[in-house]
């Protein structure tokens, strides 16, 4: 079994995984966007890393700060206008009607609930429980006049870009930007 174990295959695509050229040990995920789908991409990847025994750090900047703000974390929206992937047949005039975006975001959250995907605040709690660390960008926080009290309790600190790079130090780290 052991020689096979060292070369596992991915479950769905059945592709051999080459772990000999260095293991992935840590991911630093930078989330710069505040749209529902972007924030979830960041959270799923961070949580997924932890589930595989990979260290995960998250750095939220600019509109990504919405994901870790007490006020907004569980009320993120998706864009219905200017988003070519969202219901391409929908005329922009209709998609821009008041309330439409809120409705679309509500529907999206409902679908995710069915797939057992937690709300943003619960997801962030899961990530913290798994040893993941969340940080807010100092520059963006200053720009939006946000302080530590504006953020969820799981946010460890407000840090500079230099501190962010320090988080990524060590062999086998990958930085993912969203």
């Amino acid at each position: 079994m052991t020689d096979v174990m060292e070369k596992p295959v991915t479950q769905v695509a059945n592709v051999p995984v080459n772990k000999e050229n260095g293991k992935l040990r840590k991911v630093l995920i930078i989330c710069s966007k505040g749209k529902l789908e972007d924030v979830y991409a960041a959270l799923v990847m961070a949580n997924g890393a932890l589930m595989e025994g990979i260290e995960a750090k998250m750095f939220f900047t600019f509109f990504g700060l919405d994901a870790i703000r007490r006020k907004t974390a569980d009320h993120l929206h998706t864009a219905t206008v200017g988003n070519p992937s969202f219901m391409p047949e929908m005329p922009t005039v209709l998609a821009g009607l008041p309330g439409f975006e809120a409705f679309a975001s509500y529907m999206m959250r409902k679908e995710m609930d069915k797939l057992d995907i937690p709300h943003v605040t619960e997801f962030i709690q899961m990530i913290e429980a798994g040893g993941g660390e969340l940080y807010a960008c100092k520059l963006a926080a200053d720009m939006f006049h946000l302080t530590k009290d504006d953020f969820l309790p799981e946010v460890k600190d407000i840090i500079t870009v230099g501190d962010m790079y320090a988080l990524a130090e060590g062999e086998g780290t990958h930085i993912i930007f969203i």
Binding site: N47, L50, M51, D116, E122, Q125, G130
Partner: peptide, 26 residues
């Protein structure tokens, strides 16, 4: 899923990580 185990009433997610380090669900 992790979330379901966390809601099992047996362990929370933090405890699950502590019991099975390096791959709680797997």
């Amino acid at each position: 899923s992790m979330r379901k185990v966390g809601a099992s009433g047996i362990v929370d997610i933090k405890q699950l990580y502590a019991l099975f380090p390096g791959g709680p669900l797997k």
